[in-house]
Computed example of a mutant assay.
Amino acid sequence: MVHKEVADHIRSWRFIVLLALIVLTFITSMYVSLRNIKPAVSNISDPDHLFLYLKLLTTTDNTIPPFHVFISFLGPLLGISLGFDAINAEKNNGTLIRLMAQPVYRDNLLLSKFTGAMVIIATLFISLCLLMLGGGLLLTGVRIEPQELLRIATFIVFTIVYVSFWLALAILLSIQFKQAATSALTAIGVWLFFTVFYPIVVNLVIRAFLPDPSFLSRDEIAGYNEMILNILRVAPGQLYADATTTLLMPSVRSLGPLTMEQLAGAIPTPLPFKESLLIVWPQVSGLLAATVVCFAFSYYLFMRREIRS
């Protein structure tokens, strides 16, 4: 069943279009990074200038965003496109009844839908990152450091988890709604809300109730900024941005505001991989929990769904 789902996704035009779009953005980002890699590496004031392969994922000349920013926008579309018609299309085409007439359990069908899409997502991002590593090695001749390899591998895992959340949400909506168009529009609406409108609403509402900053101390301002950041982290895109920024930029020491006392005496050096992972572990746990909740709710609804015509 997983093999069939993978084959169906590969042959679908919507996957081919999204694959071409993601590959095109990857090639464009890598071209801009390679064109600006020498100034970035030679910048001694940058504490991350020694991490060449991380610079390939983060360096830009401000004409286009880096690759991980592109993925924060295109990743949800990939997950939604692979899952918005996972169940309702089978039911509308009459194939769901035929499948259930066979010795196939409902949970196996749902797991095959999710696993088949996850195989596609994991293969895509692993292939792109291996292509980036191979291209960087051929063009620069610089050996990759073990810490860079660990950070890039963890970045791939975080990206797969991020896209899997939107995949689980799309499958949930495909079970809840009878029409594939309705589930697709609802999933895209959720994505647009958290990507575009949620930060605007949070900033407008919270800042309207905040006191005048001129009457606050530095610690109180830092506390209010931390509160705003915590509310913004309800959005999956913010969690992914925090995690990838910390992993791909080892000099990032905190995801919140720091006071002058905390900055006093701090040396701008890269953090070890373990320390960076500890910083982003709450974000990763949040994405994993949201994915598990969406899939568990999908399982509950599908097991109780009436599938007879």
Rank of each mutant, 00 (worst) to 15 (best):
L278E: 12
M132V: 04
F26I: 14
L169H: 05
G83A: 01
A180T: 02
W191S: 11
F194E: 12
T186G: 02
F297T: 02
A289V: 10
G75R: 00
L229S: 14
G223E: 10
I221A: 06
C294M: 05
S298W: 01
T63G: 09
V69R: 08
R253D: 07
L185P: 07
V41R: 14
L192A: 14
E275V: 03
F51I: 08
T269N: 02
N92L: 00
P66S: 09
R233V: 07
R305N: 02
L54G: 03
A89K: 06
F70A: 00
R98F: 03
V142I: 15
A290T: 04
F155L: 11
N203C: 13
F297N: 00
V196W: 11
P282N: 04
I27V: 13
L255G: 10
I200R: 15
L138Y: 12
A222S: 15
L232W: 05
L131Q: 11
I231F: 14
A187V: 03
L167R: 01
L109Y: 01
W166M: 05
I121T: 06
K91E: 04
L278H: 07
K4W: 09
L288P: 03
L138E: 11
W166N: 03
S298E: 00
F67R: 02
K274N: 12
R253E: 08
V32A: 12
L128P: 13
P250W: 02
M132C: 07
L204D: 15
Y299G: 01
A243W: 09
N36G: 13
S33W: 11
L34E: 12
A289T: 12
G189N: 06
A241M: 11
I206G: 13
D107R: 07
V17A: 15
Y162R: 06
L56K: 00
I71A: 01
V119W: 02
A153H: 07
V119D: 07
A296G: 05
F165G: 00
I16M: 15
M227K: 08
G141Q: 14
L128H: 14
L239H: 05
E220A: 15
A296P: 00
M303N: 06
V104M: 05
V252I: 15
G135K: 10
L150F: 12
M249I: 10
E148C: 07
A117D: 02
M1G: 00
I64H: 09
